[in-house]
Design a binder for these strands. Structure first.
Length: 480
RNA sequence: GCCCUGAUAGCUCAAUGGUAGAGCGACCGGCUGUUAACCGGUAGGUUCUAGGUUCGAGCCCUAGUCGGGGCGCCA
């Protein structure tokens, strides 16, 4: 009998002979019809397990009665219309028609099986990350995560972007996006010091210099942008920040498109189209999993996502956002942190704008230059009526999550870029190859970064970022 | 890094400083084309670690480890 994945079995014609292989979710026994076992088998190919109805005459029926959650089985049977409620079809395992069950792997201590068929907290399941994917929730997250990954590549591929593999290890310390993990083969105990005895001598290290794990592929991908026009990266990113929140990881996946001949407005249009494309993909491709998230994880999720699809994102200047926040304060809205032009918006401010004031995704644009990175393009004085200098930066804020995308138009003018490097006391020589892009055929270009796990949170309604990546890495957390 | 909070059966949680308990799961039996099943029974404990107070500590004190929530940093 041909082996079919469970999702394919569900779509097969009644009467099809088939074999399904997977892991037992539940097993119930009945004395009806001379003895039956109802064995629900999942192989992860879709949300629902398939019910196998095993008749008592099947060889090894005494063993089949003892199947518990987690056991691995192969089942030969026939797809039939279900006599019971709760499923349209099921696999009838009848010895008269060649039905059989082979147990490939038992659960050796069912009383202590970590993911027994009962409710578990997500906190507990993080401690059994190697088994938690066998649960409804984590299986659904894994499939949605895959769906989103494919949709990312499809979105860019269809628009003529090239996928660039930027390096994981970076030997330059010039990315400036946060604390970095060091990469070294030196003996950490008996390490050689520089002649003045004050620092570690990295000249004998693997790369002949200090090296780190990347915190962003952006600077590297800009080089490919300035030859291939439209490019993107999608890879792991590392931050050694001691961040203890439900929205941060030490290792996460980031998507960073970069577009030549593109300004900030064009950048924001791609960001909006991108998010809508991804939301549409999960709604159309994973209705089974999304129904589960809508019912059990965040009631109203699907409606919320449809609203995102149907509504144009609200664009407004940072300067205007500050006005709105000031007016809200005047009307009695309390914030823990002060609202002041020239300072970064706090989480509470961003969430007020996207969740309370506009109730939809919001794109804030043109931030004060002092709170943004050196590579962001300096705007003309007085842009948006701002009281100080601004740069062409944008943040996309969404309800529930806050900032999901950060991007900007890049500074393509070498003299302005050099002035910004000087202001921020960054050594120009470290940026020699980045500056070369401005010396040899510079063009306006723009891009953004999207935190992949935050996207998964946004579309699933899950609350903690550690539950939407298979093996989370966070401070004091690197098991598995 | 800061503030708050927690750690007791495989899991979720109870337990005035005085004999360690329930629900779920597991196991055994009953009933049932079952499906968050239902009914009855059984087993299951170094109360996070190390000290301290006390006649006596799951409970009080000190330190530590780890979890969770909020904030900061950001994606």
């Amino acid at each position: 009998m041909p082996r079919l994945k469970v999702n394919a079995a569900f779509k097969s014609a009644v009467g099809t002979s088939l074999t399904v292989k997977g892991w037992v979710r539940t097993n119930r026994e009945s004395k009806a019809d001379g003895g039956l076992c109802f064995v629900a088998v999942s192989d992860g190919s879709c949300f629902d397990p398939i019910q196998c109805v095993v008749k008592a005459g099947v060889a090894g029926f005494d063993d089949i009665r003892k199947l518990t959650a987690g056991c691995a089985v192969e089942v030969d049977g026939e797809l039939v219309a279900s006599q019971g409620k709760g499923q349209a079809v099921e696999v009838l395992v009848d010895p008269a028609k060649g039905g059989a069950v082979r147990v490939l792997g038992w659960v050796e201590n069912p009383d202590q099986y970590p993911v027994a068929n009962k409710r578990h907290t997500f906190e507990y399941l993080r401690e059994v990350a190697h088994l938690r994917v066998r649960t409804n929730t984590f299986g659904a997250v894994a499939r949605v995560r895959h769906c989103l990954s494919m949709a990312v590549h499809r979105f860019f591929h269809e628009r003529g972007f090239f996928y660039v593999h930027t390096p994981i290890i970076t030997a330059s310390d010039c990315e400036g996006a946060g604390q970095m993990f060091q990469v070294s083969t030196l003996d950490m105990v008996n390490r050689k010091l520089t002649p003045d005895g004050k620092k570690c001598d990295f000249s004998e290290d693997f790369f002949g210099r200090q090296a780190h794990l990347t915190v962003s592929g952006q600077l590297n991908v800009e080089t490919y942008c300035c030859a291939l026009s439209d490019v993107y990266t999608f890879g792991p990113t590392f931050r050694a920040e001691n961040s203890n929140t439900s929205r941060h990881l030490a290792e996460f996946w980031m998507i960073e498109p970069e577009m030549a001949f593109c300004d900030l407005m064009g950048d924001s249009r791609v960001a909006e189209d991108f998010i809508k494309h991804l939301v549409e993909a999960v709604l159309t491709e994973r209705p089974d999993d999304m129904k589960f998230f809508d019912e059990r994880i965040e009631p109203g999720l699907i409606q919320r996502l449809r609203h995102v699809l149907e509504t144009p994102f609200r664009r407004l200047p940072y300067t205007e956002a500050i006005d709105i926040l000031h007016k809200a304060q005047a009307a009695g809205r309390k914030f823990e942190f002060p609202v002041k032009w020239g300072t970064d918006l706090q989480s509470e401010h961003e969430r007020f704008l996207t969740e309370e004031h506009f109730k939809q995704p919001v794109i804030l644009m043109n931030y004060p230059k002092q709170i943004k990175a050196f590579y962001m393009r300096l705007n003309d004085p007085g842009t948006d009526g701002a009281p100080g200098d601004t740069v062409a930066a944008m943040d996309v804020l969404v309800p529930q999550i806050g900032e999901i995308i950060g991007g900007s138009q890049r500074e393509e003018r070498l003299d302005v870029l050099d002035r910004r490097l000087d202001e921020m006391k960054l050594p120009k020589e470290d940026y020699w190859w980045y500056r070369d892009l401005r010396r040899y055929g510079t063009v306006p270009h723009a891009g953004f970064g999207l935190g992949f796990e935050r996207l998964v949170l946004f579309v699933t309604g899950m609350q903690n970022i550690r539950d939407v990546i298979p093996f989370p890495r966070a401070p004091k957390q690197a098991d598995f």
